[in-house]
Design a binder for these strands. Structure first.
Length: 617
RNA sequence: GCCGCCUUAGCUCAGCUGGUUAGAGCAUCAGUUUUGUAAACUGAGGGUCGUCGGUUCGAAUCCGACAGGCGGCUCCA
């Protein structure tokens, strides 16, 4: 079968992890080993080298040793030991982490930390073993506890490169000792390795932090503080255009815009349940009279109070509030990164207050907006149903039955919409309810969580939200939380990298750049006339009348990724026509040809209006 | 927050093992030039080498703390 002809990348990468571990053991005797699994594109091994530290400067040495082991073409030999014999082996070999894993295997039959009682992790056990024997793999003089599989011998492990070393908690718990995690990538051939490394270079080029500076979109200030982005005029245009697009679709579905303050009393978060869970992530404010306030980390409590300002009839429902507004969360400093994770961010937020019977229709309306938004921006979406983890109920509010029923409701919505084409996100729910999350796949194949539709039965309880029903009784309602971009900052980080800074015309901070050949009066006047016409049509145009060569000014326009530029000189003044220079990614139906100013501007304006990345010029 | 690495002009970076007034390109500003589709020429300004402290006759260079950034871990309403 053809499949058998394919190199088994998983086995190769796993073998590379062992080869790296054996190299490290040779170079750093006494090193204690953690785990060494296969990950996307490669592998890692967690090691505890004791007093010494392994740094990226040591990679050359480790790689050389690995290459030696590969050249020795040691066979991978599998053998088994009874569980108690294995534990004795770990003790003797001075491998306490392996011993801990073996104890878990013996007692619970697994080493997966999240499936185990945290109190019991790694504790030695007496009595009957869950696992009778365990397998080992040996290459050369290196032996490791391992389930396999491996390639036949070290010579067949493929091409690799060590990438980085970082800290990682033993078994992912921050109370545990921190080990050094050494990452490598592995591929079947040198050629594939090189093409992967090239792809990484490409990803670096479109890094939103780099483009944000080059395209003058946003900045950070040490005085203002980490995680607090400052948007320039250009960046603000982008935000505004994206937000307008979302809001125009919300308008179709009769959302009403509301407006709230950015701080609130602590009491609101006690009622919502957020205080209990996120007390330490709030920016807190003490008033001079000693009352405690907090910067809002989300908008639902405020919005509930607009709903709750008077009694509501069932006839009014659903009531849909929307607002794009900034939230503040005191994220851990090590978490902050560009626009992807910040301490102040704008949510394009909305809350629908409705009866349970109205949830499906409302969710589908939001879903429609999400489809149109991401479709327009060229993302492929996948859906995740994020539900609670019944083994970890302390992370959630409300009773389990209510969780079951609301999840069933969301499941049926998802099934109706996409059939079985969704991901099961057990344990991914919000503390107040299950949600439908949307993941966008970007132009270089990475996926990011973006939009979300959340069903909340807890906050209506906490804030006692009701409507008066047909029988004249107070009836509990539910809330649907819906963000399309989620956070504009985070969305921008994804989107800037998706398009590599080449925004479609409707989003471009600068749509047309008018370049003068020289500073002669008639040329400047013509350029200015073009500028005024463009402005009249609602286009964002800029004149570059600097005393620089035309080549230089073209270059500047290219580097700013302006979609259209026109050069204005003697010729244009005489004929009254322009030959637009069009950014390469924009699809054109014809060669660049002269157009009257009116034709040109009309075409660009149409393109901007229809939010496509095409032109009929 | 934790582990590791990094921090020299607005940006990108030189500055060997500590040794006189710290450099370059781009950007900025001024002058010359009046330019035709990806970088004209000349000149000028701009840095208490992230901050504070220490070692030393002497610190951009060595050590420490703090701040900020990067890569991970943990977390993510």
């Amino acid at each position: 079968m053809a499949e058998n002809q394919q190199p088994d990348l998983h086995a190769m990468r796993h073998s590379l992890a062992h080869i790296m571990a054996s190299a490290i053991t040779r170079l750093y005797p006494g090193v204690k080993l953690g785990v060494g699994p296969v990950v996307e594109n490669g592998f890692y091994y967690d090691v505890d080298p004791g007093e010494t530290q392994i740094s990226e400067e040591d990679f050359e040495k480790i790689e050389a040793e690995m290459k030696k082991i590969i050249a020795e073409n040691q066979p991978f030999e599998r053998f088994t030991k009874p569980i108690d014999g294995a534990i004795a082996w770990a003790k003797e070999a001075g491998q306490p982490y392996k011993e801990e894993l073996l104890n878990d295997l013996k007692r619970a039959g697994t080493t997966v930390a999240k499936d185990l009682d945290p109190e019991q992790l790694g504790v030695a056990s007496e009595g009957e073993a869950q696992v009778a024997e365990v397998s080992f793999y040996k290459n050369g003089d290196f032996t490791d506890l391992c389930r396999g599989p491996h390639v036949e011998s070290t010579g067949r492990a493929g091409a690799f490169k060590l990438m980085r070393v970082s800290g990682a908690y033993w078994r992912g718990k921050d109370a545990n000792p921190q080990m050094q995690r050494i990452y490598g990538v592995g591929f079947a051939s040198e050629k594939e390795l090189r093409s992967y490394l090239n792809m990484l270079e490409e990803a670096k080029k479109r890094d939103h932090r780099k483009l944000g500076q080059e395209l003058d979109l946003f900045t950070f200030s040490d005085l203002v503080g980490p995680g607090l982005p400052l948007f320039t005029p250009r960046g603000t245009i982008l935000r505004r255009q994206l937000d307008n697009f979302v809001q125009s679709m919300r308008d179709e579905y009769d959302y009403q815009e509301v407006s709230i303050p950015h701080i609130t009393k602590k009491d609101a978060y006690i009622a919502s349940g957020h205080w209990k869970k996120f007390e330490h992530e709030l920016f807190r404010i003490q008033t001079r009279e000693g009352h405690e306030f907090a910067m809002k980390p989300m908008n639902c409590p405020h919005h509930t109070q607009i709903y709750a300002a008077r009694s509501r009839s069932y006839k009014e429902l659903p009531i849909r509030y929307r607002e794009t507004t900034t939230c503040y969360r005191d994220e851990q400093s090590g978490e902050l990164s560009g626009l992807s994770r910040v301490r102040s961010f704008a949510q394009d937020d909305a809350h629908v207050f409705c009866r349970t019977s109205q949830v499906e229709e409302e969710a589908l309306k939001v879903w429609d907006i999400i489809d149109r938004f991401y479709g327009t921006l060229g993302f492929e979406l996948t859906v995740r149903l994020s539900t609670h983890d019944s083994g970890n109920m302390e992370a959630y509010s409300g009773d389990p039955e209510k969780w079951e029923s609301t999840e069933k409701q969301l499941l049926s919505i998802v099934k109706n919409k996409v059939g079985d084409n969704y991901i099961d996100g057990v344990g991914e729910a919000a503390f107040y309810g299950p949600k439908i999350d949307f993941m966008a796949k970007d132009a270089i194949g990475r996926t990011w969580q973006v939009a979300t539709i959340q069903l909340d039965f807890n906050q209506p309880e906490g804030f006692d939200l009701t409507c008066v029903n047909e029988a004249g009784e107070r009836e509990r309602i539910v809330m649907v939380h819906a963000a399309i971009m989620g956070s504009i900052e985070r969305f921008l980080s994804v989107y800037i990298e998706h398009v590599a800074g080449k925004f479609p015309v409707w989003l471009s901070p600068e749509q047309i750049r008018i370049i003068t050949v020289n500073q002669e009066e008639k040329i400047t006047a013509f350029a200015d006339q073009l500028l005024q016409e463009a402005k009249k049509m609602g286009l964002r145009a800029v004149i570059d009348n600097d005393n620089e060569s035309v080549g230089k000014k073209i270059r500047t326009a290219e580097m700013l990724k302006v979609p259209y530029s026109v050069v204005i000189g003697e010729k244009e003044v005489e004929t009254g026509e322009v030959v637009p220079r069009i950014r390469k990614d924009i699809e054109v139906n014809a060669e660049h040809q002269p157009h009257t100013i009116e034709e040109f501007l009309k075409t660009v304006a149409n393109e901007a209006k229809s939010r496509v990345n095409k032109t009929s010029l």
